[in-house]
Structures are given as C-alpha cells and as structure tokens.
Computed example of a mutant assay.
Amino acid sequence: MIKNMFINKDKSKIKSLLKDQTDVPDGIITKCPKCKKITYHKELIRNLKVCNGCGYYFPMTSTERIEFILDQNSFIEFDATMVSDNPLNFPQYTKKLKEDQKKTNLNEAIITGEGEIQGISVVIAVMDYRFRMGSMGSVVGEKIARAMEAAIEKKVPFIIFTASGGARMQEGFVSLMQMAKTSSAAKLLDVYKNLSISIMTSPTTGGVSASFASLGDYNFAEPGSLIGFAGRRIIEQTIREKLPEDFQTAEFLLQHGQLDRIISRDEMRNTLASILSLHQGGNI
C-alpha cells in the first residue's frame, strides 16, 4: 500500500490546472536555456513549465505553483499587505523593493496562506525567486514563522516550497536573525506533532538552505535543483579540491542521504496528497 503513495493518479488533471491561463499573448515564444528548443508560452504552461525537449525546469512563480498544487478556489492568503522596511537605511533598498513590487505584483518574496490538496486542509508557503532573488529578510522570516504557527493552531500540515538566494544582505543582522526565528518555529511544528513538508526548488541556497528548508519531516526537491550553502568556487578554494560536476544538485544530495525523494513537477500534487492522506490515516 505504501509503495502506491507515489503513483500518479490524475496527471491529466494536474496538467490542466494551468491550461486556462490567459495572460500570455498568442505567438509569444520561449527558448529553453539548456537545449535551445523554441516553445510557445502557452504550451510551456500546459506542461507545467517543463521543457518537453530536454526536461529542463523553468522557474515557477509563487502564484503559478499555488494554482497547480492547491484545489481550485481553496486558497486564502495570510499577511498579504506585509511589506519590508529599511532597518539599516541601506542605500537604494527602498527603491529596489518598490521596483520588485511593481515588476512581480508581489509585496514580498513569499506568499503564505491556507488551502486544500485533494480536500485535505494545509497551510502553505511558497517563495518567489523573482523578488530580490527570493532572499529572506525580516518580512519573509516573519511570514514563514506565522504560517508555521497558524498550522499548529489549525492542527493542519505545513508545506513550504523554497526558492532563494539566501539571507537578504540589505537587512544585515536582521536578516540573519530570521534563520533562528524560522528554525525555532519549525521546532514547534515538531513539538506539537504537526506534519511538515519542505520542497526545495532551484535555487535553495545560503541561509535558507541552512535553516527551515532542511527541517521538514519530509525533505523533497524538484529534479536538477541547485541546493547548497556556500558557492561552489568558495568551497573549492577552501578545501583545495575539485568538486564533482553534479555537486549541490538535488540528485547529488539524494545520493548522499540529504533528501528523501526527488519529485517531478507533474507528480508533485498527487504525491503530496498521498502523504497527507497517509498521515491522516486515510486509504492510499
């Protein structure tokens, strides 16, 4: 029974969740950075933003990911109006925040809220790499901690999709404090026996990879995701050795016991639903 929890039950339904997106004009195309294949945007979206030529995973926005993971019209956002300040008066930081807000239509680098996956209630947090490279500042850390606390209060599982360059340098020590805050909140999930699932997408690096991203009861990743703390060049210079070509990829981490499983995008929703059902005592 348990082995069947990873079987894709309604792949066609998952792929259809984004097919009605209409904000991409007809005739606009995208070139795959890996195989150079040209694909229409709408076709790419129907394929969950995975290149059908080489399997390259294009980044997903937070809203796209929420749309295909959660049941339709089930999502209720938390803390939507929370925005970052400039605690260190870092030059141009406020201006850059406003530019990213306008460019992404987001207030910060994460969306949190509650919803359902195949009828099972969850609290979900989804990071967005387009906003300040998904970096974790005071608001990102606060929203994650609040979402974890909400999961405890509602007695529902917590799911997070990470995509981040790490701590936000413009907020200095305030940003670094978020590592402790989010890790402490993750510990509370464990204390109160709340199921916690972390899905690392590319990239998950720096202070995010070194804190809450690696603290789930299940730690998953998308294929080919870049996951690590320090940069490859810095590590090689420090240890004075050449690192393997696949170092800091999801596949390398899985091979070395740092991930539980790599899950393809079209299997993600059903896999999560199966795990949630298992922990509820449901039938798999």
Rank of each mutant, 00 (worst) to 15 (best):
M1H: 08
F6I: 12
N8K: 10
K9N: 13
S12P: 01
I14N: 12
L18C: 04
L18W: 11
Q21M: 13
P25F: 05
P25T: 06
D26N: 10
K31T: 12
C32T: 02
K34D: 15
K36F: 10
K37I: 07
T39C: 13
Y40N: 12
G53K: 11
C54R: 00
G55A: 06
Y56N: 13
M60N: 12
M60R: 11
R65V: 08
Q72S: 13
S74K: 00
T81W: 13
M82P: 05
K95N: 13
K98W: 05
I117P: 00
G119N: 03
S121C: 03
V123L: 10
M133K: 13
V139P: 05
K143M: 06
I144T: 02
V156L: 05
V156S: 14
I160S: 01
G165V: 14
R168I: 07
T182G: 03
K193F: 04
I197T: 03
I197F: 05
I197A: 02
M200S: 09
A210V: 11
S211K: 09
S214M: 13
S214D: 14
Y218P: 00
N219Y: 07
L226G: 15
L226N: 15
L226I: 15
A230G: 09
R232T: 13
I234H: 15
I235P: 05
D246P: 12
F247V: 08
F252G: 08
L254E: 11
G257S: 04
G257T: 02
I262A: 08
L272F: 01
L276T: 02
L278F: 00
N283I: 04
I284E: 00
